[in-house]
């Protein structure tokens, strides 16, 4: 669209006039075209967030709507609820384990592939990346079978005398009393982490591989010339240079893990003693099975806030970076 910019210095004022004129038409057009989507997003995203917030402070806890003001009642109920406290514990454990493993495995595999030690790198890349293409529901069902304590991988592990109970285990590692629950790392959540990591590692791998490609070879050469060992090269130079990738991976994985629903729902459900329950599953069951609409809305708002804690600083720093 833009005309080729072969302009002389003394012609500049004319061009500026032209540009401004063009801008106004473009602006006018773009505003016209933006209006429908802005209206739709305003209603269907922000409007409904507002509506959810409104429901969360109402008394609508049966099938009959009741919008009288309830204050913080629903939030207080949740904070005192065994199930919701368990949700917070599980989400925390899941998020930390999941992000850590995805980064370690993703980066490790990317670095190995980047060594070009083996041929057919693209084949391996695709193999690792492929689970990403599956739905979490498929992953959940498959891993539910694999990790089923009586029919799954245990049939093989039995030969070595180990029979983990996987997602049916109700033990809490390093547990201590906290509120109504035992806080710690629920063993059952590890099974869910395995499935989630299996699916998402390929994504981190692809991100890191792209990042490694972006690091010019002369930096490596220079470091080697200065007598850097390969280990030092990665520890001191490459991995620090990959920091923006790591931040992106953390943000993306955090928003997946904080909102996770489908994987858990397909794989384990809330689990015995709520060892694999997460806010998403709790929200669904509270709202659409129990008809506690206000309680469910409160869970949704807390989930939104927890994701916002991760996303907002990220967006903020991005904005600063751009300007």
């Amino acid at each position: 669209m833009e005309p080729a910019k072969t302009v002389h210095v003394n012609q500049q004022p004319i061009i500026q006039v032209k540009k401004r004129k063009k801008l106004t038409t473009d602006r006018w057009m773009s505003i016209l075209f933006l209006i429908p989507s802005v209206i739709l997003i305003a209603i269907f995203v922000y409007g409904f967030i507002g509506w959810t917030g409104y429901v969360s402070v109402s008394n609508w806890n049966t099938i009959v709507p009741d919008f009288s003001f309830a204050g913080m009642k629903n939030y207080l109920y949740l904070l005192n609820d065994f199930r919701f406290q368990a949700d917070l514990r599980n989400t925390l454990a899941f998020t930390v384990l999941f992000i850590a493993l995805v980064i370690i495995l993703g980066m490790g595999l990317a670095i190995l592939l980047d060594q070009k030690l083996v041929r057919g790198e693209s084949i391996f890349r695709n193999i690792f990346f492929f689970p990403m293409a599956l739905s979490f529901v498929v992953t959940g069902v498959v891993w539910q079978w694999i990790l089923n304590p009586s029919t799954g991988i245990n049939l093989f592990l039995k030969n070595f005398g180990i029979e983990p109970k996987w997602y049916t285990d109700t033990n809490i590692l390093a547990g201590f009393e906290w509120g109504k629950i035992e806080f710690g790392l629920p063993v059952a959540i590890i099974a869910v982490v395995i499935a989630a990591v299996w699916q998402m590692t390929g994504f981190a791998l692809a991100m890191y591989l792209a990042g490694l490609r972006g690091i010019p070879d002369d930096i490596r050469e220079a470091a080697r010339m200065d007598g850097c060992t390969e280990f030092q090269l990665y520890r001191k130079i490459i991995i620090p240079l990959l920091k923006p990738i790591t931040v992106s991976v953390i943000i993306m994985m955090a928003h997946i893990s904080l909102k996770i629903f489908d994987l858990i729902y397909a794989m384990t459900g809330p689990g015995a003693n709520f060892v694999t329950d997460v806010p998403g599953v709790n929200m669904f069951e509270t709202t659409f099975r129990g008809n506690y609409y206000a309680n469910g809305a409160a869970i949704a708002i807390i989930m939104l806030l927890s994701v916002a804690i991760f996303i907002v600083p990220y967006l903020w720093s991005n904005r600063k970076g751009e300007s």
Binding site: N61, T62, F82, F274
Partner: peptide
Amino acid sequence: APEGFLTRVNQAVNI
């Protein structure tokens, strides 16, 4: 009993 009560009972039973 209403669904809401049943949901609470199911939670208590699960624990």
